[in-house]
Structures are given as structure tokens and as C-alpha cells.
Amino acid sequence: MARYDMSTIETGALGAVAPGAVFLQLGMAAALGRHGAIDRVAAHKWFNLAARDGVAEAIRLRRELSLEMSAAEIADAQRAAREWLAAH
């Protein structure tokens, strides 16, 4: 598997469209709290973007994560995914 510099995805270093595998890894990092506190909203956002790119594992993880989230948290995550797409 290719190794990506995860810290640069927000700045678009991988180009206009990042591979779904990178989004999946960002979602896992947020869900597991690899860079601080667990952030379910951020994890859901990245899983949304990975799912959009056809990553089946992201679809499953997003579904599981949704069971632990409130409707407001899910709405926030979906909004954040749309905003990320609009910005990139």
C-alpha cells in the first residue's frame, strides 16, 4: 500500500481529489483518537468521503459509527464533508 503524508491532505498536496484509501485512514485516525481525543464527527466526515470514492470498508465503518452518534452529530459530519468537497 502506498504511504501518504496524512498531514498534507487538508492543504491539497495530493491533488484536487485524494484517494478514498487516504480518507479511510483519516477516518480511522479520528475514530481511534490517534492524534488526540476521539472525534466521531471528523471520523464520520472522512468515512463519508471515502464511501463517496467507493471504499466499501468506509461504508461499513460509517454505519457502525452512526449507531454511537446523535442525529445532530451526524448532520455536523455530513455538513463538514460537503464543506470539504466544496473547498477542495
Rank of each mutant, 00 (worst) to 15 (best):
P19S: 00
G20F: 06
N48G: 00
V41A: 05
N48C: 12
Q25W: 05
L26T: 09
W46C: 01
R40T: 11
H44G: 03
D53S: 11
R34Y: 00
K45N: 06
G36P: 09
I38G: 05
R40V: 09
Q25M: 13
H35M: 08
A42P: 02
D53T: 09
A31W: 00
G33Y: 07
V22T: 11
H44T: 07
A50V: 11
V22L: 08
L14H: 15
H44Y: 15
G27V: 11
L32D: 04
A31E: 04
A21F: 01
A31N: 12
R40F: 01
A51K: 02
G27T: 12
D39P: 07
G54V: 10
M28V: 15
H44D: 13
A50I: 12
F47V: 02
H35T: 13
A37G: 05
A43L: 04
L49P: 04
A37T: 13
L14Q: 15
G54F: 04
A21Q: 14
N48D: 08
G36I: 04
G54A: 07
I38V: 15
D53M: 12
H35F: 05
L26G: 09
V55R: 02
R52M: 08
G33L: 03
G20I: 14
L32P: 05
V17A: 02
A30N: 10
M28A: 01
A30F: 01
F23K: 00
A50Q: 05
A42R: 13
A21S: 14
L26W: 00
R52C: 00
N48F: 06
G36N: 14
A56S: 12
F47K: 02
V17I: 14
D39M: 02
R40K: 15
A56T: 13
R40E: 13
D53N: 06
A16H: 14
D39N: 15
G54W: 11
H35N: 14
G27A: 04
V22P: 06
A31V: 08
P19A: 02
L26M: 15
L32T: 11
W46Q: 03
N48P: 03
A37Q: 13
V17C: 06
V41I: 15
A21R: 07
A18N: 11
G20Y: 03
K45P: 10
W46T: 05
G27P: 05
L49G: 05
N48H: 05
A30M: 03
A50T: 10
V17M: 12
L49N: 03
A21Y: 01
H35E: 15
